[in-house]
């Protein structure tokens, strides 16, 4: 083990095994994350079945423009994240760093848009409580989930932005070798956060729009 690679850590004996192991580990963690969101989505689905009219009316009150723009932003960020991960593996340092930077910026853009949307929601009386605007029964219930689910998603995204920015910073400083499994691991986490939004967008924004 004289030619130990700088990205190799204990207890791994080869970089190839380490990459496989790290990737396997994050997949197991993502299974856990899937169950985390599945719990809330199951409750949401049951309640939507019990209160179809109220949930459709409430979903119509969400701002589809903010939601759609954010969907596009986040899907694009997954593209740049995938490119960054592949570029790091291929040793293309500049491309990897550039794409990491764009990914983090797109993530930030999502949060900024979401912030404006939250502001509009608050001013528009969409916070459950005495000032709530909609009359339909169960509309408050829908918005309870709207705030909880988009909030939890935003927390996940914030963690993702910090992780991606950290990778870009350490890659730029040269303290993190491009062969480190951290790139792929972070990418897989980022894609999951994106995927959660792919579920939230049709569940929260699209119902009740076709009529």
């Amino acid at each position: 083990m004289s030619q130990a690679h700088p990205a190799l850590r204990e207890p791994w004996r080869s970089l190839h095994r380490q990459r496989q192991g790290a990737s396997f580990g994050i997949w197991v963690f993502l299974a856990s994350e899937v169950m985390f969101f599945a719990g809330a989505l199951m409750v949401f689905g049951m309640l939507r079945l019990q209160h179809p009219a109220g949930f459709l009316a409430a979903a119509r009150a969400t701002d589809i423009w903010f939601g759609s723009v954010n969907t596009a932003v986040l899907l694009t960020s997954s593209l740049t994240m995938a490119v960054a991960s592949q570029a790091a593996e291929a040793g293309l340092r500049r491309l990897a760093l550039r794409c990491l930077g764009i990914t983090a910026l797109l993530g930030l853009a999502f949060l900024v848009v979401k912030g404006f949307e939250y502001r509009a929601d608050i001013l528009g009386g969409l916070v459950p409580g005495p000032t709530f605007r909609l009359e339909e029964p169960a509309a408050q219930l829908f918005f309870g989930f709207y705030w909880a689910l988009t909030g939890v998603h935003a927390v996940h995204l914030t963690i993702g932005i910090v992780a991606v920015a950290g990778l870009a910073w350490r890659g730029w400083r040269g303290t993190l070798p491009l062969a480190s499994p951290a790139f792929e691991v972070t990418a897989l986490y980022w894609h999951l956060v994106d995927l959660v939004w792919v579920f939230l967008y049709p569940l929260l924004y699209l119902p009740g729009r076709s009529g």
């Binding site: 049951m46 209160h51 909880a148």
Partner: peptide
């Protein structure tokens, strides 16, 4: 947030 609140239709 009324998540499980029966007053708002929660369960």
């Amino acid at each position: 947030l009324p998540i499980f609140d029966p007053a708002h239709g929660g369960d």
